[in-house]
């Protein structure tokens, strides 16, 4: 089988699996009851999912592997030996703690610093949240996020195979917290992230809180934990943003002045067409 066929098959299997996991949950325990499976812009989010499988995931992982090899040469061997002298469970706890800490602050920066927000707002531009919307992410944003999460493991030289189950759990749970599900888990929500918390992060306000994805402990620690009893009224961003896949891929990388110029040209072209046709 060719590489493309393999990737297509993997994407198809993944979509079927994710449909099986999340659609029944979204139907039986909906957060927003009126939201349909094929809601507005679902095709756009499907493009993101397919884009990740067929185009970007290989590139993102290539960059991260390259980065990790580079880190291998940069970190002093003595430091690595010191880390390795600790029990494996302690190394694992350290890796997870520092990962959560880094991604928490990295995520807060994505919302504060305009340059990072350029890329991150692609993910926040979704006006409907469900398992499919979770995949809306710019590849450069992926490199930043996945790079930060993995940085402690890269620095410490920790082999994440030892945490394979946790790695897998985090992966699927991250999709779950975006799904259109409301399932109260009681006091457990202080330990593990839930859709009711992450939905508030996707509130239309840019700095709505809940920056930690998996465990809200960091939000509790740094005072950004938000958990009102109801769902947010509106998701998305307040800014104008393209509604097409290509537009959303290009907008963050094209300088503002050029984007404006292109927009003006497109508008002029459209008005000329209207004049001719009228």
């Amino acid at each position: 089988m060719t590489r493309i066929a393999e990737l297509l098959l993997a994407a198809a299997i993944s979509i079927i699996f994710l449909l099986l996991v999340f659609v029944p949950m979204e139907k039986v325990f909906p957060a927003k009851k009126g939201q349909k499976i094929f809601r507005r812009h679902w095709v756009l989010d499907l493009c993101y999912l397919l884009g990740q499988y067929l185009l970007w995931s290989g590139l993102v992982l290539w960059v991260l592997n390259y980065f990790s090899f580079w880190m291998d040469g940069l970190v002093p061997a003595k430091f690595r030996a010191l880390v390795k002298s600790q029990p494996v469970w302690l190394q694992a706890v350290e890796v997870l703690f520092f990962s959560d800490l880094l991604i928490y602050w990295g995520h807060r920066l994505q919302h504060k610093v305009d340059f990072l927000w350029r890329f991150h707002k692609v993910h926040h531009s979704s006006e409907h949240l469900d398992w499919l919307a979770a995949h809306r992410e710019h590849p450069l944003d992926s490199i930043y996020t996945i790079g930060l999460i993995n940085l402690p493991a890269f620095v410490m030289g920790f082999q994440l195979e030892a945490l394979a189950a946790i790695v897998a759990f985090r992966g699927i749970w991250d999709i779950y917290i975006h799904s259109n599900v409301r399932l109260p888990i009681g006091p457990l929500k202080m330990l593990i992230g839930s859709p009711e918390l992450h939905h508030w992060h996707h509130d239309i306000e840019r700095d709505a809180g809940n920056y930690a994805n998996i465990s809200p402990i960091m939000d509790k620690l740094f005072g950004t934990y938000v958990c009102p009893p109801q769902e947010p009224e509106q998701y998305g961003i307040k800014e104008d943003f393209p509604k097409t896949y290509v537009g959303q891929m290009l907008k963050p990388v094209v300088p503002g002045w050029l984007w404006k110029k292109l927009g003006e040209k497109r508008k002029a072209g459209t008005s000329t067409k209207i004049e001719i046709s009228s």
Partner: peptide, 18 residues
């Protein structure tokens, strides 16, 4: 290396083959 994923990319395919 095994990699921790961000929220949006729990990939089912094994990347080691890519």
């Amino acid at each position: 290396k095994h990699i921790l994923y961000s929220s949006k990319s729990a990939i089912m395919v094994d990347e080691s083959q890519i």
